[in-house]
Every structure is written in C-alpha cells, then in structure tokens.
Write a protein that binds this DNA or RNA. Structure first.
Length: 428
RNA sequence: GGAGGAGUGGCCGAGUGGUUGAAGGCGGCGGUCUUGAAAACCGUUAGGCCCGCAAGGGUCUCGGGGGUUCGAAUCCCUCCUCCUCCGCCA
C-alpha cells in the first residue's frame, strides 16, 4: 500500500505506473473522494474543538456551582452533528483504504517497460542443456515408470492438481527440501522458520494477497483463515506491527512449507504432470532490510537461490520481469528458470522480488535508525526453491535411457542412493 | 469445551466519569559538573490525520470495534490475545 499523502502528491507517477503495468486506475474518482473526505474532516474537527472547549467550561461551572444546563443542551446537539460527520467520514475512509489497497507497487526505474512476458529481459545463463542419446521423457512418464509418482492415486484421494509420491520419489521431495534448508541456513546465513500453514486476514492483507487475490487461495470455511499460498505471507508477518532494532538488519529468514493455490483461471494450463498443483512444497527466502541496501540484497538473494540450481547441476537462466509482468507488490523481480528437456525450454522455478516499503507499510514493519525517526523497512522475498518443480527438473535432466534416474552428487547423502533404479528393478 | 483473572506510552507501573496524552520509576536523548568517565542535578523523550507556504493551530489514539454521556483510560456490550484451574486430545 502506498502512503496516502505521497499518493495524493504524486498522482502523475501513478498514472505512468498504471500505463506501464497495463492496468487502469480511477484517479479522477480518487481525487473527488479525497477532496470530499478532507472537507468533512475539517468541518468535523472544528465542531470537536468547540465541544472540547465547552466541556472544560462545563466542568469549571459545575465545580464552582454555576448552572451549565444551557451549554450541555447545546453540546448535545453538537455531538449529534459530530456523530453524523464521523459516520460519513468513516465511510469515505473505508472507500479510500479499499482503493489504495488495490493500487500496485511502483516499478523501480531499472525495470524495463514492456507489454507482457515477451518483453522480459534475460540477464544471464548458467550451464548447458544435457545431451541425450534418446528422446527424453516428460517427468510424469519417468516418474510413473520408476514407480515414484502416482498421480491417479492423488486424484482418487483429493482430485486433479494434487500429487502423490512413492518410495524414492517421496524421499526425493524430502531430500530436496532438506538440501535447500541446509544450504541456506549453513552457507547463506538464513534463520530457519517453521510457521503455521494457515494465515489470517490481517497477515494476507499485509503482503497484498488480500483483498485483491482472494480467489487464488483456499479459504477455510467459517473461519478467518486461509491456507497459505506462499511462506512469504508468514515470514513477512513475523514482524507485523513491530519496530525492528536497526542493528538487527538485515534479517534473513527461510522457511519450508506446503503452499496451497486454487489456480482459478489456470484451467488448461500445465495439466499434465506436477508443474501446477493445488498443493506444493517450497522453501522461501525472505529479508527485512534498510531501504538503502535493499537492491544489493536483492542481487544476493537471487544468487542464493541460483546457488541451489548450480549445486544440483541444473541448466538455468535469470530473467528480469518487465513492468507488465511484475507482481502486485513488487518493485523489481527476477525469475529463475530451469531447463526442462521434455519441453526443450525453460520453466519458472523461483521468483525473487524487492517489495521496497510496499508490504512494510501495509504490515506496519519499521526500524529505528540511530537518533532518527522510525522508518518502514524494505522486504524481499524469493523461492529458494519450489520443491516440486525442482523434483521435475532433477527427474527430467538426470533420467537415463533405462528409466533410472541418477542422483546429483549433493543429493546422495540425503537420498542414501546414487540413483533411483530402472523400472525392471523397481518392483514395489 | 467449562470456570476465573488480566491487557495503560520503549519497558515497569499509577490512575474508576471533568485541564489525564496520561503521575512516578527505568531506559533513551541533550545539558551542567569532570582531564575523561561514572555518580548527581537540570531539561527533554509517541504516533496518525486535518488546516497552513511556514510558524503554528486543531483532532484522534490507554488490546480491537461498538454503545452510554455535554464529557470515557475510567461505566456497558462485543471481539481478540495472554495467564490460572477443570475436561479432552496428537
């Protein structure tokens, strides 16, 4: 959310932002609403000042035994009037807030202006696509042959867009999550958090998931709880409505969680395999930083996520999103895309964003510099990485002609085996 | 799930309808003193919003929301959180 005063004073900035993001903002409506609201506040406060003065006078008169009945009667009328004003103002406040909550963040000047995905910019590539002496199979075929993935069972238990892993497949999921967490905590300096998998309205509003994206989440009926769509929500809200000690910054935390997404509007997209699920695991990276260092920290965050792909030996590239593709709360985003042989292309596996003070303002997360006034921190988040999609990438990139899957070196201690055996040897 | 108790400023802690945005203490900041420091002493020490070029003025905030009243930290309702006891349970 943007600061109301800043928004009012820089409408031209927001007009440009809307154009660059390809959205519409009713700025004229805002102007009228804002003007009316301020006029009413001024009028109401004038009456309140009058009432406060009169109340003192009443107290004085009563103390000295004088009559105050006339004044009291008059103030009764004034109070009625104030009540009318306050009710009207509350309505306008709510409308202002609702409007402001739907205004996305301003892109950083370094973000390329674009119309859509096609205008994203490739920043760098790492590694090379593996060469196969046979036609590589998609991960669901490899997984079914090796009997480590049972999608029909998941459909029976829960429905479409759920997955069920078996044996070494289940262990691979667990191995990946552990490898991610160990790397980030032991080598990259993040503190591990294991948060609730559900979050309330206030938390989801803080990150920007509510009110605008309610349809993308699973709401727990009859409660104020939603299944978390990403641990970004929980990690951001670790410090909601708190002032962080300046010396503690930057704070780096990471969390493994399940994530739940309704994927409304994604019908027909990624229907085969496990690329797009209602439930998936993810290790999330999150930073609270001082404003002046947040962009340096973003570069480091991307490197932390990339390091995982590199240690797994997976070919990937880094993409900078253009203005039109930028997420609601983000001022600048890099996506990491991993090579998937079956598609002969790249697939998103991580998204790393600097939200600047956008979330911090919504969530009330401040820090107090030495001798200065408290200010909002900057928040950054990134996947490090999506576990299910990494599972896909490992299975596809390390598949062998006989159907076995070689384990990358770094996973072997976690897996206890060098390769997931070929189908013939994989009898259940 | 049942029965009680509690939520005041950065922290502790007064305050039960009328100059209380809130005593006092601690902490923080500035100063006096000191070669320096400590101690002592003096002063200072929330934020949001509205009007205003500014200086400044006004208003709101004592867990959240609502109500009673001319006036609420103080009375009433409701919700949330924490604590104690009982029950249940992985």
């Amino acid at each position: 959310m943007h600061d109301l005063n800043f928004f009012r004073d820089h409408l031209e900035l927001f007009e440009q932002m809307a154009r660059h993001r390809g959205i519409t903002l009713d700025l004229e409506g805002f102007r009228a609403l804002d003007r009316e609201r301020r006029e009413l506040i001024t009028a109401a406060e004038r009456l309140k000042a009058e009432r406060n003065k009169a109340s003192e006078e009443i107290a004085r008169r009563k103390k000295s035994g004088q009559d105050a009945a006339g004044l009291i009667a008059e103030m009764k009328r004034v109070s009625e009037e104030i009540k009318q004003y306050d009710e009207h103002i509350a309505q306008l406040d709510e409308r202002t807030r609702e409007f402001l909550l739907t205004v996305p963040n301003l892109p950083h000047p370094s973000v390329p202006v674009g119309q859509g995905e096609q205008d994203n910019v490739e920043v760098r590539r790492w590694g090379a696509a593996p060469k196969f002496s046979f036609t590589p199979r998609p991960h669901w075929e490899v997984g079914e042959r090796a009997r480590i993935l049972d999608l029909p069972a998941a459909v029976k238990i829960a429905g479409a867009r759920f997955a069920l892993y078996v044996g070494a497949g289940a262990r691979l999921e667990r191995a990946l999550a552990n490898f991610f967490l160990d790397t980030h905590t032991q080598q990259h300096g993040y503190t591990e958090i294991l948060p609730p998998f559900a979050a309330n309205r206030a938390s989801l509003t803080g990150t920007g998931h509510l009110p605008k994206f309610a349809a993308d989440m699973f709401h727990l009926e009859g409660t104020d709880l939603w299944l978390t769509p990403t641990a970004e929500v929980q990690l951001n809200n670790l410090y909601r409505d708190e002032t962080i000690d300046a010396d503690a910054l930057p704070i780096k935390v990471c969390a493994w969680t399940a994530c739940f997404r309704s994927e409304a509007g994604a019908a027909g997209k990624d229907t085969r395999g496990i690329a797009r699920q209602h439930q998936f695991q993810k290790v999330e990276l999150f930073k609270f930083t001082r404003p002046e260092s947040s962009y340096d920290e973003l570069e480091l965050l991307v490197r932390d996520a990339e390091a995982i792909l590199q240690r797994l030996g997976l070919h990937h590239r880094v993409i900078q999103l253009c203005t039109a593709d930028l997420g609601f709360a983000s001022a600048k985003t890099y996506d990491l895309e991993v090579w998937l042989p079956s598609t002969n292309g790249f697939k998103e596996i991580s998204s790393c964003s600097n939200c600047e003070a956008f979330q911090a303002r919504r969530s009330g997360i401040r820090y107090k510099p030495k001798g200065g006034k408290s200010e909002f921190v900057h928040t950054l988040n990134g996947s490090g990485l999506a576990v299910g999609r990494t599972w896909m990438a490992v299975v596809e990139n390390y598949q062998q002609e006989d159907g076995s899957i070689v384990m990358p070196e770094v996973l072997r201690p976690y897996m206890g085996i060098d390769r997931i055996p070929a189908p013939a040897a994989a009898k259940a």
